[in-house]
Write a protein that binds this DNA or RNA. Structure first.
Lengths: 304, 304
DNA sequence: CTAATGTCTTTTATCGTGAAAAAACAGTTT
DNA sequence: AAACTGTTTTTTCACGATAAAAGACATTAG
């Protein structure tokens, strides 16, 4: 099916699904521009959504009046997999191959083959590879193919080295922020969420990764340096797949991490540079350890 | 002209030009694979080159025998501008616009317009923007346009902050390299070239930038960290355009920088961490100053 | 007269296509 | 038989075209 397909309408489908969830809460929808702002899409997309909602009898739509007629049914939703960006699909597919073994370092990456395998055009794959190259896992040979550098121990060490450098500096900058900065409020809120999660860790341990990212991003932002802030994308991406990949002792690991986070937050609030430094180092060290244990040990260099 | 053009043959033209320069030195050319390795292109391209050289009477070509018949004439060469990569063309064009003023921060970037203006396809522009985004000068709005962040004072400060962090660490790693590492030889050679240039600074001052890049890259490589090494691309790119842009007191600036480099090299050779740190800091501080003075002062934020 | 809706235009995202260049394969020469 | 040349196949690079989505403009409602 669909061989001449030019562009998927995932933006529309995703926004439609999110709009459906809104329906439960109100008896009538707001204006088109307002809805657009709420869903993060243009009015054009909003109108497509409204048109379909009218068609399927979810709402009655006449100019400004958008009255909800019935609650959404499970199969009013578009299937999850149709709401993903092409970039997400390609990334997932690529990472699956990379982590599922058989992906030796030095192996060459074939754009055409990847594109065919995933069922997308070569342009999209090319653009993905260019974007992905900043993560340091692949490299381009001048006017030739891409080469896989591999998700190795060396990679993890290089990544964490930078991470530690950046985060120590950001954490120090954090303590220097004025008392009336909104970050202190954000920090308090995060602390609260950590405490709640710590209490319910038995059932909700998998919600930690999201909290982890939010805390570290808040701290990195204090550096006010775009290169430091952007670098967190690399870390986030790696940890995202790492969490999915390594489920061993997830609960215990997250429980420990929450404890470290709380100590870290405490240190930040004390504004004592020495304490901050110590708490930050302690947490990053254990994060590095966790990452390293999930990577298969590489053979020591052979003497021939 | 050329509206259905699919791919320029700049690889061929550039390699052809470089091959012409080889002709002066020998009476006959080596084998096809050897020539390919020498020029950094595939044998397919080598054969195209040889075919044309035969056509234009530069060589007689019969299987293994490739005898040079005459010296190349200036108009045997392809014009310089036809040997550039599309990526180079787009980058130059883009940077010219950016530096030539009128490029306010926050301005939106239009792919189609850029493509038309430069006379290339939209795909190439898109791929360029994706690649270029890692330099921190532009940013993408989710499923919408690109936004220019501007070549501002803030940018220069953020860039140099990272640079200083990375280079101090690399320089420290450098001193820890074993005595038999080839870097010490490289360093000696660079020192020699610096001394020669220092002597002939009056006429050759514009050759400094290349030397500068080679020294700093050598040092950064000692970090053995791909993120640090790759980050030098950002620095190199910025300084490349900065050198073209700001010609004021170029000779004096470069003379000072050579002095700093020599002191820096001396410190590295002494393997004294304290000296290295001091020399590195001194040089980076003046490099930052040079960069900052070339950026027009931004107005302080208005109170309204 | 402001803020919405209705309509039209522009821009982005993605594909298939074809030429340039690389790479693989097959046949020769020394 | 090792290394080269001749030939064929693959892969990368760049384009124009087209649907999705954004954005601009014109019109109308409150």
């Amino acid at each position: 099916m669909g061989q001449g397909m030019s562009k998927s309408n995932n933006v529309y489908k995703d926004a439609y699904n999110r709009c459906l969830r809104l329906l439960d809460e109100t008896r009538s929808l707001p204006s088109e521009p307002e809805l657009g702002a709420l869903l993060g899409v243009s009015r054009t997309t909003v109108r497509s959504i409204l048109a379909r909602m009218e068609e399927t009898g979810l709402i009655a739509w006449n100019k400004r009046a958008k009255t909800v007629l019935r609650d959404p049914h499970p199969d009013d939703f578009f299937p999850e997999e149709e709401t993903d960006t092409l970039a997400e699909i390609i990334e997932r597919s690529f990472m699956r191959r990379l982590l599922a073994g058989g992906a030796e370092a030095g192996m060459q990456i074939n754009e055409l083959e990847l594109a065919r395998e995933i069922g997308v055009g070569t342009t999209s794959v090319r653009e993905f590879l260019i974007r992905f190259s900043r993560f340091g896992l692949i490299e381009k040979r001048r006017n030739s193919h891409w080469v896989l550098k591999g998700f190795t121990r060396a990679f993890a060490l290089e990544l964490t080295e930078i991470r530690e450098m950046f985060e120590l500096r950001s954490a120090a900058a954090f303590t220097a922020l004025p008392q009336d900065s909104p970050v202190w409020g954000d920090l308090d809120r995060l602390e609260g969420e950590h405490r709640v999660l710590a209490r319910e860790i038995a059932t909700r341990f998998n919600e930690f990764s999201e909290l982890d990212e939010r805390l570290h991003r808040l701290i990195h932002r204090a550096s006010r340096n775009r290169f430091i802030v952007d670098f967190y994308d690399v870390i986030a991406m790696i940890f995202h797949y790492h969490y999915q990949w390594n489920k061993a002792q997830e609960r215990e690991r997250n429980e420990v991490a929450i404890g470290e986070h709380l100590a870290y937050i405490e240190a930040l609030k004390s504004r004592d540079l020495g304490k901050v430094d110590a708490a930050c180092r302690r947490h990053l060290k254990s994060a590095r350890q966790t990452l390293l244990t999930s990577i298969p040990e590489s053979r020591p260099p052979q003497k021939s």
